[in-house]
């Protein structure tokens, strides 16, 4: 008899729990899963605005994997990811550690650090465009003034130059985001643990590696996940600074797909989106695994 009552109570609780979750589930379904499903569906069709619509199954994907333009975008985006994300994490961690110490004007500094993140992406991209400008950009002006070079540098004009310029602009903009997240994580570590570690004869580096970093891991994974997904999707910075150039070497995934959508080839554009989605999903699952989410110890 008691067992039944408990069963009913559990069922009621479960129903209540789900009814609270319902708005969120509806939201995710409607605005996230449905569009993804829509994209997958569209990608199976020859959906070109000026041609007849046909179901072609995986033809779009076959074309995609043979297209050198796709692989160029793949190479660039992955390289961009591998270079910029670690840089952001390292600088972000550095800033977070500094901002966690008791230094004068700490509150002011914390606010200042956030400024790059607060500036809208397009505006900061335009500003960097002006900085990298060959003729009257700030970068060339400073470099020539400081005697580092005697001829202006064509920042966006070479493969390495354009890539580095993009990385620098992106790292500048998004490091504050990482720093703030990591700072929150650092502050969650009880101060006494550090004092205890000091007494236990650990020096600063040892404390950092054995206490701070392990306890920071969940937050690190979150920051890593966010930055990875954002780096995969990079568009506005590339669009403003290089338009994918010079010679198409800085074309990102998003830019590549965008061109096809613009030309009316929605089926193919959708297939690019789907591929990007799968890569992002794969990386997310990877991070969750190594971060052992859901199995934290407090």
């Amino acid at each position: 008899m008691l067992k039944d009552i408990n069963k009913i109570r559990n069922y009621r609780e479960l129903r209540e729990a789900y009814s609270f979750l319902l708005p969120l589930i509806v939201f995710i379904l409607a605005f996230i899963l449905l569009p993804v499903a829509g994209a997958i569906f569209t990608s199976l069709f020859k959906d070109i605005s000026f041609l007849e619509k046909k179901f072609i199954f995986f033809e779009n994907y076959k074309y995609l994997f043979k297209d050198p333009g796709f692989w160029q975008a793949f190479r660039f985006t992955m390289l961009f990811l591998i270079v910029s994300v670690p840089l952001e994490m390292i600088f972000g961690l550095l800033f977070a550690v500094i901002l966690n110490q008791s230094i004068p004007f700490r509150g002011c500094l914390r606010a200042c650090v956030l400024i790059p993140w607060a500036i809208p992406a397009a505006i900061s991209a335009r500003t960097w465009e002006l900085i990298y400008n060959y003729h009257y950009g700030l970068a060339n002006f400073l470099f020539m003034k400081l005697g580092l070079t005697n001829a202006p540098i064509n920042w966006l004009g070479s493969n390495l130059g354009a890539f580095s310029s993009l990385v620098i602009s992106d790292v500048w903009k998004t490091t504050p985001f990482v720093a703030i997240i990591l700072l929150a994580g650092l502050q969650a570590i009880p101060v006494e643990l550090h004092a205890q570690a000091r007494v236990d004869r650990a020096n600063f580096l040892q404390r950092f590696y054995k206490i701070t970093l392990p306890l920071l891991k969940p937050v690190l994974i979150v920051a890593l996940l966010f930055r990875t997904i954002d780096a995969l999707r990079i568009f506005d910075l590339v669009y403003v600074l290089t338009m994918g150039g010079p010679g198409g070497v800085t074309t990102s995934f998003s830019m590549y797909g965008y061109r096809y959508f613009l030309a009316g080839d929605f089926g193919y554009g959708s297939s690019v989106s789907v591929v990007l989605f799968i890569i992002a999903l794969g990386l997310s699952i990877f991070y969750v695994r190594i971060g052992k989410w859901g199995k934290e110890v407090i």
Binding site: N133, Y134, H135, P152, N154, W155, L156, G157, A162, G245
Partner: peptide, 8 residues
């Protein structure tokens, strides 16, 4: 023509 021709 300046080097910025093909970038900017």
């Amino acid at each position: 023509s300046p080097p910025s021709t093909f970038t900017e």
